[in-house]
């Protein structure tokens, strides 16, 4: 299966062109750059490197979140529109699972990817590397106060590998809660890798293109405030098409 995979959930952009399990071309940029400017030219460049035309693609795999809202929307919109235009499959994969997958060599271990969501909150989840070297969900992705999450992890009788650049930044806090049960391995890649993303997406169920949206895991503030005081009627649409 000919796959184009990309992730622009956070600072890093990773794009890969993959044939089945074989990587043909990949580029990861981990400096703060505008994803809107660099994503499409990179896709174009890598497809040329692979000597493919867009029409040869069979599947688009995109990191669907959580992460930076703007980055998620650029990736999701690009992915769904490419898939729609080419008439091919679209698959969304958790951006946290993509990071957890970087620890694929740690069979049986528990992996905790983290993204800073600001104000003491993090996007995180808990994964285990199964016998096939796949990161599978133990605790689904969530938006949570760091203290609450670390308290939960401290009550699990397991060693946990933390992944992600944001995890390294709060190493000391994590160690305070988990002491010697927290691991930070230099052997694990700390940035998303679109090749790993493509492999997770290759075996995942196809999603509906039109209704595909990022997994923000957090309501817009105004929406949350409104929902605290109102309920949306069933079947009520907030957008009218004419």
């Amino acid at each position: 299966m000919k796959i184009l995979a990309f992730d622009t959930s956070n600072t890093a952009m990773s794009v890969a062109v993959v044939d089945g399990q074989q990587l043909l071309a990949e580029k990861t940029v981990n400096v703060r750059k505008n994803h809107s400017i660099q994503l499409m030219p990179t896709i174009d460049l890598l497809l040329q490197d692979a000597k493919w035309t867009p029409q040869m693609l069979e599947r688009i795999v995109v990191a669907e979140g959580p992460g930076s809202y703007t980055g998620l929307r650029i990736a999701a919109t690009t992915a769904k529109t490419l898939a729609w235009t080419l008439g091919i499959d679209l698959v969304g994969v958790s951006s946290l699972q993509v990071l957890a997958q970087n620890a694929a060599m740690l069979e049986g271990q528990w992996i905790c990817p983290l993204f800073d969501a600001r104000r003491g909150n993090f996007y995180t989840g808990l994964y285990r590397i199964n016998m096939d070297g796949q990161a599978v969900v133990i605790e689904p992705d969530t938006h949570i106060a760091l203290v609450e999450w670390l308290d939960y992890l401290a009550h699990q009788d397991k060693t946990i590998y933390f992944v992600g650049e944001d995890a390294w930044k709060i190493k000391d806090t994590i160690k305070k809660h988990l002491a010697d049960r927290a691991y930070f391995s230099k052997a694990i890649l700390q940035t998303p890798d679109a090749w790993q993303l493509s492999q997770l997406g290759a075996c995942k169920e196809v999603t509906d293109i039109h209704t595909f949206v990022p997994q923000y895991l957090k309501l817009a503030e105004a929406e949350a405030n409104w929902l605290a005081r109102h309920t949306l009627q069933e079947g009520e649409s907030l957008v009218d098409t004419y």
Partner: peptide, 20 residues
């Protein structure tokens, strides 16, 4: 208009309106 909510709605509808 709340900008973040506007952006979210745009992603929900973009391919639908193009197809239509």
């Amino acid at each position: 208009v709340v900008p973040e909510i506007a952006s979210r709605h745009h992603v929900e509808f973009i391919t639908l309106v193009i197809e239509e």
